[in-house]
Design a protein around this nucleic acid. Structure first.
Lengths: 189, 189
DNA sequence: GTCTATAGTGCGATAGAC
DNA sequence: GTCTATCGCACTATAGAC
C-alpha cells in the first residue's frame, strides 16, 4: 500500500473517456482529467506524451501482439495468408465484452480528426512492423509491404464493421469474410 | 499594387519549407515563418489552421483531382480497374519536375510523426472520397471501400518508390507495376 | 512541482480592392 | 458600402524545461 492509489494510468484513461463522452475532446483539458482522479496536470503528462495518447492505452501491447502473431504464424505458401492467420490470432484482443468500450472510444474518435490521425499512425506502425517480419521470413519487396498494408486494410475495415450497431459476428469471422472479399475485388481486375 | 505583396500563402509555404529543412519542424515557430515573409503570426494562422497545414498546400486540389479522376474513369468491369485508371490520370500532379520538391518535403515528414499523421489523414480522406464515388457508380460494399483503400495503398507505395534516390521511372509507370504486384500478392493466397 | 515558450483562438481595428 | 487581408492584443491550453 503506497502513498498513491494504484493504477494511475488506467484511472486517468477511464476518467478521460467519461469526460470526452460528456463534453467532447477539445472541451476537456488535461488538468480536468487529472483533477477528477486526484492527480496533477503534470502527472497526466508524465503518463501520456500528449493529450491524445490517453485514448490509446494498451495500443503498444496490441501492436506487439499483432506483429508477434504474424511472426509466429505457420509457414504458408503466401505472404498474405501468413498475415491473415496472424490477424485472426490477434483478434482475441477484441472479444465481445470489449465491444461496448470500443464503440464508445470510436464515437469520440469519429468526432475528432486529430484523434483519427493518431489512430492511423498506430495502424501504419503495425503495418510497418508486419512488413519487416515478412521480409525476415524471406518475402521480397514490394510483396512484403503490399501484403502487410493489405492485411491492415482488411483489419481496419473488419474492425469498423465489427463496431456497427447491427453487427454481431466475432471479429475473426468478419476478418475472414473481408479477406475473401479482397480476393474477389483484386481478382476481378 | 496593393498594400501587401501578393501570394501570402505560397510565400509562407516556401519560407516554411526552407526553415523546416534548416532547423527542423519543432524548432521553427509559426511566428518565425511569418516574420521571414513580413507577416504576423496571427496572419499565419489565418492562412493555415495549424502549423502542420503549411506543408499540405494544394492538397485539397490534389484530393479533388484524384476523386474526380476516378469519377470520370471509363466504365470498367472491375472497381479496382476503375481506381487504377483514375490514379494513373492523377499521377500528372507529380511530374518529374516535382520530384525535387517532393523529396525535400518527404525528408521533413520522415522526421516528424505528427506530420506523418496528417499525411495519413489526407490519404484516408481521398480513399473515403473514392469509396463514395464507387458506391455512386453502383459498386456494393464492402467491395467499394476495399477497392478504394487498396488503390490508395498502391498509390502510397508507388509514391514512396518514386521518391527513392535510385528511381527514375515516372509515377504512373510505377503505379502500374505496383497494381500488378498487388494482383500477384492477393492471388497467391 | 514550478515556470515558461509555443500553439492556437477570439475580437476589434485598419487599409485597400471592387 | 462591402469584402478580404492584415495587425495587435489578450487569453487559454499544451507541452517541455528546469
Amino acid at each position: 500500500m503506497g502513498r498513491w492509489e494504484p493504477g494511475g494510468s488506467s484511472r486517468l484513461r477511464e476518467a478521460a473517456l467519461e469526460l470526452f463522452l460528456e463534453q467532447g475532446f477539445d472541451e476537456t483539458t488535461a488538468g480536468e482529467i487529472a483533477q477528477r482522479v486526484g492527480l496533477s496536470e503534470r502527472t497526466f503528462f508524465r503518463h501520456f506524451g500528449d493529450k491524445k495518447e490517453v485514448l490509446f492505452g494498451g495500443s503498444e501491447e496490441f501492436q506487439r501482439e499483432m506483429i508477434a502473431a504474424v511472426a509466429d504464424a505457420p509457414v504458408g505458401p503466401s505472404p498474405l495468408g501468413v498475415v491473415a492467420s496472424g490477424l485472426a490470432k490477434a483478434a482475441r484482443f477484441f472479444p465481445d465484452e470489449a465491444r461496448d468500450y470500443s464503440r464508445k472510444r470510436w464515437r469520440i474518435l469519429g468526432e475528432n480528426p486529430a484523434l483519427q490521425e493518431r489512430e492511423l499512425l498506430k495502424m501504419a506502425a503495425i503495418a510497418s512492423g508486419i512488413g519487416a517480419v515478412l521480409r525476415d521470413r524471406g518475402v521480397p519487396e514490394p510483396a512484403a509491404t503490399l501484403a502487410a498494408e493489405s492485411g491492415i486494410t482488411v483489419f481496419r475495415l473488419a474492425f469498423e464493421r465489427w463496431l456497427a450497431p447491427d453487427e454481431h459476428r466475432p471479429l475473426a469471422e468478419i476478418e475472414r469474410a473481408m479477406f475473401v472479399e479482397l480476393g474477389a475485388v483484386v481478382a476481378g481486375s
